[in-house]
Design a protein around this nucleic acid. Sequence first.
DNA 1: GATTAATTTAAACGGGTGTTTAAATTAAAT
DNA 2: ATTTAATTTAAACACCCGTTTAAATTAATC
Lengths: 213, 213
Amino acid sequence: MASRTDTKTRILDAAEKLFAERGFSETSLRLITSKAEVNLASVNYHFGSKKELIRAVLARYLDVFMPSAAIEINRLHHAPEHASLNEIFSALIKPLLELNKVRNGGTIIFLQLLGRGYIESQGHLRWFITTHYGEHLATFVKAVAASAPHIPPAEMFWRLHFTLGTIVFTMASADALNEIAAADYGEHNNTEAIIRKVIPYMAAGVAVPVLTN
Amino acid sequence: MASRTDTKTRILDAAEKLFAERGFSETSLRLITSKAEVNLASVNYHFGSKKELIRAVLARYLDVFMPSAAIEINRLHHAPEHASLNEIFSALIKPLLELNKVRNGGTIIFLQLLGRGYIESQGHLRWFITTHYGEHLATFVKAVAASAPHIPPAEMFWRLHFTLGTIVFTMASADALNEIAAADYGEHNNTEAIIRKVIPYMAAGVAVPVLTN
DNA sequence: GATTAATTTAAACGGGTGTTTAAATTAAAT
DNA sequence: ATTTAATTTAAACACCCGTTTAAATTAATC
């Protein structure tokens, strides 16, 4: 039994790294199993198919992040004064950075997987997340809406997806952007620094008054 | 000679649509040539390789969009009063929507291709665009920087890439988001409506004061 | 109209993909 | 210790990929 979980974990560890770096369809099972030093067929034995492996990789992160994020949001929401958007987004920093303790580079891997998933899977991931973590998401959306009551729900829907695009695209390109920033401006940002840069941007965008003319 | 350009165009037309919908690596040459109703080998005959076809598809849009965008930005920049960020971003609407006249759905196809390219090509597209359209990009960046002089260059670098992520991710998911918006809020947005929604979001994010604490 | 060049075509090539199979091995249970 | 179950393994399967080839066809040139 020790060997089973071991093999499963080795596959998940190798897969998530490669998936985040090169995308799902660009990562072959042969590459994963060779990096994980397990037999090719063990993926299908333990996970059934490549698609289910992808889901397992994502679920391993979502199962840690989503409850943790919901707790932080609830903590804010139950506070007497209404939290600002910056505070709400910042409440996600701790859950995100805790993923770094689960695995080296976990934070950026998770965000990159999220982005890859949303773009590559043409809606499948969106469905998967909303059906499996809908309550957690609703907590977050409710908190954001309460902090920006001047934004109509439909407009908020769009802006939250703008926000998702911002963070997810940024993280997918984070390594490349960091290289350019280092070369051109002498900047060296880790994942946390980038997250702290992007939060004010997103908060300002979400809260900007709707143009009426 | 009529047949040559015809075949080339048929390939480009079919390819850009499929590339935008499913991504580059998920789109096979066999799918492209069957949709285009041309022979499989004609892609390699006319373009040399799949990679060069991808470049040709992108260049056909960039060659129209980039000069047109630069003209609009320059028009703003030469005006006596400084343009606002909203005006600068809005100046891109016309060049973007003109792509719709070049081809049906050209605007969203272009933005989706851009997003796919940035995410799939791990920096190749970024290099291609900056080396081929660097002067046009510089015009845009200079105009934005002049409109938000309180943002340091390094911070502006990051915020402009946040902005790219916002628009590009949004457009890549536009169809799916539109379906949800229609079902949940009775909204029906075309490409222009989405662009007009996202511009205030991006402008507010780019201009938000840098936190100093 | 004959000759040359450009294009289209069908077929094959070599290689990579996810998945399945059945035998070999290891672990667990009786 | 023997039987049963779980896991690992090497090999093969069937399929799709981008690219190349060489012959057939079409267009352009002399």
